[in-house]
């Protein structure tokens, strides 16, 4: 089953004279348990595509379906609820909430998804164990290394077992080991939970973990070959 489906999607960013076409006639599918790398240079439209997939933007034309639900047809409040429950985000550099501890960042992701506190706690503990960051749980983001912060961000994205995980440059500014650890965590944990993962990156180190690579240049998909 497709977790995410783009069908002839056009999208633009900015307003007025600064409005630019960010995506043109994009069609793609990401299936359950699949990790797809969205590869392209800066300004190619990767972030816009992720924002559309997460229901943060709506397309100018075409449809974006999350688990067969046309996101553009949902009222904004329903779209937000669906996003909280069925989508997990891993932002560049983690983008954790700086006033909260690592544990609180992860718990918040689960609570917003509607998990009760016990479910949330046990899911968070399990992820902390599997990501080997249990000893970081009570630390704030400013005391974490880049790799540690990204692993906490992965835990936040996965705590509610979403249908779709959207990761934006998760290995940016990470050293080799940290980048591999984050990519491995995404592939193993998300895939193991049946989540589809769409990773926007131009970091070739992540390609071995992908089941497919999709190339994106100037808002158009240029390739979509299965990765070997």
């Amino acid at each position: 089953m497709n977790a995410l489906c783009f069908d002839q999607v056009d999208a633009s960013r900015g307003a007025g004279a600064h409005r630019v076409r960010a995506l043109q006639e994009v069609t793609l599918q990401v299936s359950e348990g699949e990790l797809v790398v969205l590869d392209g240079p800066s300004g190619s439209g990767k972030t816009t595509l992720l924002a559309l997939a997460g229901g943060l933007l709506t397309p100018d034309a075409g449809t974006v379906r999350l688990e067969n639900t046309d996101l553009a047809k949902l009222p904004a409040a329903d779209r937000r609820r669906l996003r909280a429950r069925r989508v997990g985000f891993v932002f560049q550099h983690g983008n954790l909430l700086s006033a909260l501890t690592a544990r609180q960042n992860v718990l918040l992701g689960g609570l917003l998804a509607g998990l009760d506190r016990d479910e949330c706690r046990s899911a968070a503990e399990e992820l902390f164990d599997r990501l080997a960051i249990g000893d970081l749980a009570d630390r704030r983001p400013d005391s974490l290394s880049g790799g540690e912060e990204m692993r906490v961000a992965v835990a936040r994205a996965l705590v509610h077992s979403p249908a779709l995980v959207l990761a934006d440059e998760p290995s940016a500014s990470l050293d080799g080991d940290s980048a591999l650890a984050v990519a491995e965590a995404l592939a193993r944990l998300a895939g193991g939970r049946g989540s589809a993962v769409l990773v926007a990156t131009h970091d070739a180190r992540l390609l071995p973990f992908a089941s497919r690579r999709i190339g994106l240049i100037d808002g158009r998909i240029t390739s979509g070959e299965p990765h070997v």
Partner: peptide, 8 residues
């Protein structure tokens, strides 16, 4: 970030 991860 809060709005993106589903806070109203």
């Amino acid at each position: 970030i809060l709005l993106a991860i589903g806070t109203s």
